[in-house]
Structures are given as C-alpha cells and as structure tokens.
Amino acid sequence: MSLIAEFPPTSFVYADRIEDHDPPPAWLVALVKRARGLVLPLLLAAAWHWASSIDASMAYAFVPLDQVWERLLQLLSTGELAINAGSSLGRALTGLALGGLSGILLGSLMAGFPLVERLFGPLLQAFRQVPPLGWLPLVGLWLGSGEEAKQLLVAVAAFHPLLLNSYEGFAQAEKKHLEVGRVLMLSRWRSFRFILLPTALPSILTGVGQALAFAWISTIGVELLFGTGAGLGSLMHTAQMAGDMGVVLLCVISIGLMGYGLNLILSLVRARLLRWRVTG
C-alpha cells in the first residue's frame, strides 16, 4: 500500500480524466473499439463489389455480393452445403481417429520399449518428411480416387503429430513420480493410469490439436485434388470448374469457420482435462 502512495498517478491520467466531462457508457466504447475490426473486411467487400460492376469479365471473377448471397440461400435450401460439410467433417474425424489412435499406440510403445523405437523410429522419421498430400499421386495410383484413398491420406496426416507428441509425452514421465508409485506398490495398470497417462496427457492433447488441423487441411486437400464424391473440397472443385466464384467463396468461409469451431471445441476439452494444471 505504501508503495503505491509514494508513486502518485502520472499526469496524463489526470489529463485524460479532465477531457472526459461526460464519458460515454463503457459498453459503447467497447463496441466501437470492437467495430474497428470490421472496417477492413467491409472495405474489401465494397472494393470487391465495385470491381464486379466494372464490366462482365470482371464480374466473372468478382461475383457481385448479392449473387453470393443468392448462392448461399440456394446451397442452404437444397441442403447441399450441409451434406458436403457433413461429409468433410466425417472424413476428417474418422481420419483423426484412425491415424491418431495408431499414432498414440505406436508413440507410447516407442517410449516404453527402446527396441520398438530403434526398429521403427528412423523409418517413420523418413516417412514423415513427405507432406501428407505428397503421397496423393501414389495412393491415387494404388487405391484410386475413392473413399479408401482419401481416408488413408487423412489418417496419415493425423498420424505423425500424435506419434511424435505421445512419444515425447510418455518419455518425459518423471522419476520422482514413478518412485512414489513404487513406494505405494501400484500395479502396472495403475502406474500407467495414474502416473504415465496424466504426465503424457498435455503433450498428447497438443498432438490432437495439431493432428486435427492437419486432418482438416488434408481432408479439404484430398477432396479438392481428387474432386470426387461429397465434401466441401469437391464442391469447391466443381464450382471452380464451372467458374462459380460465389460457391467457391462460400466454401472458403465454411472451411474457415468449421476449422475454427473444431479448434474451439478442442480447447474446451483441453481446459476441462487439464484443469489440474497451474494456470496463468
């Protein structure tokens, strides 16, 4: 307390106060401050709309915004958007489950058994260097462009981050905690459940976050590049072929929103599972 008294508020704070004879309500200030973030997107949208009005060729690339709106209503009413978004979401989550679980399994085995690490470590390290979509032509040759091929590529994308993070997580179990487990005579299963797993969990959840992002990107990528079946990527592919910028734009926005939503859900799960950690 005495410290604060020795350092009086600096003069500009007073100046601020004097100017504000009748301060606007706090919520209004907050709203105006927030609204500044909308200026740039709105300006861009206006420029876009203006560009579309120059001539017909420009209107082909820069679709007038009212047309985009019509497209949106159309996609919503036919259920096209929902079906394709659902298909992409299912593909990404299945790939995450398949690739992620195998990643966690192999990662924990590699952390627990040096032999497994020595046998598979270097090989997996080499395979990891090829970006998930880099496998696409090869997988396309072997499995065609159907669902198996897509699912495999998405699973591969989700596999590596979880392999790496679960390996690191399990490898960093602290000796002092394991020692407590010995003193308390915990069974193997209990040591795993109450010491190893919680130690590895933060790292594994980080891996789930990365794997989710990779799975989502790869889902869009494989749909876009194969251009077959349902999915936002395929929808976008078809729209691009037809020169339908409105649908392409709506797909981009949907993909961004869905990625953001998935991330948000994961961070809520994370906060719930890791609430034992010191925060801040």
Binding site: K176, V180, L184, W276
Partner: peptide, 19 residues
C-alpha cells in the same frame, strides 16, 4: 511432497489405498 498434480488431495490419498 510429490503429490500427483493431476489428482485432487482426496484422489492422491485414495491412490495409496489401491491395494
């Protein structure tokens, strides 16, 4: 103290009774 940070106080003590 070597309590497990991911368990509550009660769960930490309960763990010692797992046998």
């Amino acid at each position: 103290h070597r309590l497990f940070p991911w368990l509550t106080v009660e769960q930490n003590v309960l763990l010692a009774l797992s046998n």
